[in-house]
Design a protein around this nucleic acid. Sequence first.
DNA 1: AGCTCTTATGAATCATTGA
DNA 2: GTCAATGATTCATAAGAGC
Lengths: 298, 298
Amino acid sequence: MRQVRTEIRHGDCLEVLKDYPDGAFQLIFTSPPYADRRANTYGGIKPEEYVQWFLPRSEQFLRVLGPTGTFVLNIKEKAESGERSTYVLELILELRRQGWLWTEEFIWHKKNCYPGKWPNRFRDAWERCLQFNKSRHFKMNQEAVMVPMGQWAEGRLKSLGSNDVIRFNSRVGSGFGKNIANWLNRTMAYPTNVLHLATECGNKKHSAAFPQELAAWFIKLFTDESDWVLDPFVGSGTTCKAARELGRCSVGIDLVEAYCDIARSQLSEVECLLFEREPEYGKSHGVRDKGVHRGEHP
Amino acid sequence: MRQVRTEIRHGDCLEVLKDYPDGAFQLIFTSPPYADRRANTYGGIKPEEYVQWFLPRSEQFLRVLGPTGTFVLNIKEKAESGERSTYVLELILELRRQGWLWTEEFIWHKKNCYPGKWPNRFRDAWERCLQFNKSRHFKMNQEAVMVPMGQWAEGRLKSLGSNDVIRFNSRVGSGFGKNIANWLNRTMAYPTNVLHLATECGNKKHSAAFPQELAAWFIKLFTDESDWVLDPFVGSGTTCKAARELGRCSVGIDLVEAYCDIARSQLSEVECLLFEREPEYGKSHGVRDKGVHRGEHP
DNA sequence: AGCTCTTATGAATCATTGA
DNA sequence: GTCAATGATTCATAAGAGC
């Protein structure tokens, strides 16, 4: 493994990103401050101002993203006076005008969503993960996120007894054995555009807006090892933590200094884990940077 | 149970709905022809013309919907030359300008989605069910769609077939029904805004665009018995079938005569089922109309 | 009756071909 | 070129056949 670099930068991504050259990143994954949420820390952008606040920043994203890169935006509009806000819809339309291709909308189904009961509304159990690209020909490693097949195949696999295994071992190449071999290869299936993930519970010191697995899924899908990942609203650092554990370099930016501190401390824990694991494999992973780096560009 | 009336009307809903008075319906549930889909039967509305095609019709929907009524639109944009179409987003924005409140967006997660493999896209496993209202104060029967909690209840609920649901719906208040009601209350939870349903496979003579359970869910949630339900693009009649089995009156409209015929024949089967089931409960359900009625307004 | 296994079939999407 | 039609790909269901 090559050296994995991780930078946590304090500041407004609109300004900080000017330090980075064109096409520096392969993936931008972020969950921006939602309109009127986290008002105490981010100043609470109003829904009607959200699009105009976002566009100059996404212009920078467009610049620093590589030609085959992907921008994934995790967002969900709130309900306000009985209605869903429309600023996310308007944002999608404006991002297209800015030059982005709106490739796909993934659904993150929150298996354990926030509890509550209202007379005219059920609990909100999903968020959008909007995929944008600069080109139709972007990098996508579909095999990296394959999942075990459903119960239909599961049932069939269970019924494969020792006879079948013997037959498989001894007769590969012949017609029948070959069929089984092909069939065994098909125990994994490609996922769909609906992701089922539970929100991480509050056992961590600082709850993240999304589970690390969500960031990890998109990182595996849209980057290779040593690629650079950006989270311009990094919060408690989940994206960078996921990137680091997957051997991807990353830059996380946050307006709030306290969040940057949290992110750095979380990343130090990752570092420890990596060192502990190393002896298991009996070889150096080349992880020499014990702290979290700052200021070195991709 | 009072008489359940079901009308299947042939024609363009834009014209046919002029026969119906203001506020005649409590729920409009429909899955309109998607842009560029079903071109052979519906003429295939182009994405860029879709909003302008839809708006005059939704203006009629707004008129015939009662003040506490709900309009649920099942729709999904296609992917075209690598991008998702934006006409659904634009439609939502235009419907708000027309006077609708965009109350909620439910996600129908299609457990068995269409297969396929592409280099830059996974299979599409979800559709939108957009909820619109005329007022913040709409009718919503949350208890009618409660779902089993956890595995223990799930196993027991499997044995509860549709007969039991009918029994539960129709006989709450009597001793037996009350016990069921109590038991249900302890083991049932409110659902979220994500619905997990499989598309019905081609075992039926004519495949519907959505499973009957999807229509039934919204009918139970947003109407009472004897309320009127409208599906202005009724297709093979799934909405009216669901409405009828739940004791709701309904009007289904379709541009294609052949679809109207299918819908009517499906409804005749419902009629037979209702008559067959009746002796089980030893009382009249008041279903006297053996055919499918036409022309009588709510 | 319960099982297993086979098979048909979808509101899909993209690349290619032909007008 | 731009547009329409066709083929290849693929997986969760449920009906149906066989034991």
